[in-house]
């Protein structure tokens, strides 16, 4: 029987044995990269919506408060997608000829739902409540990103469990004064930009966060049953 493999394949086998570690590491990294990629997490992905609603225009340029449309965010688990009536409060009078807004007018005329595509969705086995986060000084933009700069709404966080736990383990990293929760342009304190709370000036997020945590009685909840109930 002749040689099946050429002598040079010896080198290949040697490299592959010692390279096994590298290959496994590369595979692990590839998996991680896929898990963190927008293709898998939908972060930064703009979905096709019935109307190209712009948060940048409404919340950013016009300065309409988040709660004007998301009325239930302060006392309910879900923030609330506004009914068509809320859109028509203004758009019955302005941009009434815009073809872009025809689906909104049709929805109001025919009493049909506008079928928005969900941007942020959690698996059904996760319990999440907006109201408690709002009440404890977690700002809208902390999770939803720079919403006032998004012409089309997109997901800002991976919504992975690790993403939730990052903050639940150290809430002080993200807390802000309650008065600033709905400000889409809020900047955390830095050396160049002090944030005043109760007459005290803070120039460092962790220092302010620790103060607020004590003041607002923010627990670092990490029980499984906090979210999986």
């Amino acid at each position: 029987m002749g040689q099946i493999f050429h002598r040079s394949t010896n080198m290949v086998s040697r490299i592959s044995i010692y390279g096994a570690v590298l290959i496994i590491a590369a595979l692990a990294y590839a998996l991680y990269a896929i898990a963190m990629s927008p293709w898998y997490t939908n972060v930064g992905v703009k979905l096709q919506q019935p109307v190209p609603f712009s948060h940048r225009h409404h919340a950013g340029e016009l300065g309409i408060d988040c709660r004007y449309c998301h009325t239930s965010v302060e006392n309910s688990s879900f923030a609330g997608v506004p009914p068509t009536q809320t859109c028509m409060t203004c758009h019955s009078q302005i941009w009434t000829n815009s073809s872009m807004l025809e689906p909104v007018r049709a929805s109001y005329r025919n009493d049909t739902s506008l079928e928005w595509q969900r941007v942020n969705a959690l698996p059904d086995f996760v319990y999440f409540d907006h109201s408690i986060h709002i009440a404890k000084g977690v700002g809208c933009t902390t999770c939803h990103g720079q919403i006032a700069e998004m012409p089309l709404t997109q997901r800002a966080g991976t919504l992975y469990m690790s993403w939730c736990l990052d903050c639940h383990r150290q809430p002080e990293k993200n807390l802000r004064p309650k008065a600033e929760v709905f400000d889409p342009f809020y900047q955390p304190p830095s050396r160049l930009h002090a944030v005043t709370v109760d007459g005290m000036e803070f120039t460092d997020q962790l220092t302010m966060g620790r103060y607020l945590r004590k003041e607002y009685k923010v627990a670092s909840l990490q029980y499984c049953s906090t979210c999986h109930r």
């Binding site: 879900f78 997608v81 739902s113 079928e115 698996p123 059904d124 086995f125």
Partner: peptide, 21 residues
Amino acid sequence: DMHIQPKYLPYEPTSFFADGR
């Protein structure tokens, strides 16, 4: 099964009612 449980969360569409709500 656990990700998409047979229950209605807020705003979840349904095919049961004619208007889809």
